[in-house]
Amino acid sequence: MIEITLEVNGETRRLSVESRRLLADVLRQEFNLSGVHIGCAHGACGCCTVHLDGKPRLSCLTFAAQCDGKSVRTVESVGGVGADHPLQKAFRSEHGLQCGYCTPGFIMTLIPFVEEMTAERRMPDEEEIREAMSGNICRCTGYQGIVEAVRKVIGENLEEGAQA
């Protein structure tokens, strides 16, 4: 067993974990963050994407032991129980989800992309948006609603920035 300190969604905890425990399992079991979904457990579907020190990371390819002293964000921290983050709202309005299983992974993968585009003050083309989500599999939506949600939220951000 290994003693680690994790800061998860603003809460810092010291805990003891077996070396082999995947970050995904530790988040789900020790932190009760059931929004972390495991879709393939071999790094090929993106469902388990979380932010490790601010960057997207597959939590099924990460051992919790490797995360000592690091900061983790999961979908639960993004827009609260009301799912109020602009990207979450855009997923709702553009029907970017159906069964919802892959959704937290898409949200966590795409938030940094949306922020990056907003910071660069540009609307990515369709191909770039699709490339940004190419590590995530959605079996329900056919991706179009997700692409539209990303476009919508970047558009809103650019408009807001233009007004400010």
């Binding site: 129980v81 799912a83 997923f91 029907h95 989800l97 919802g100």
Partner: peptide, 19 residues
């Protein structure tokens, strides 16, 4: 009409079998 079920699915509060 936007879907009512989306909120819990987006927020990560849905309950699937492994939960």
């Amino acid at each position: 009409i936007q879907r009512f079920e989306d909120t819990r699915l987006l927020a990560g509060t849905a309950r699937y079998i492994d939960d």
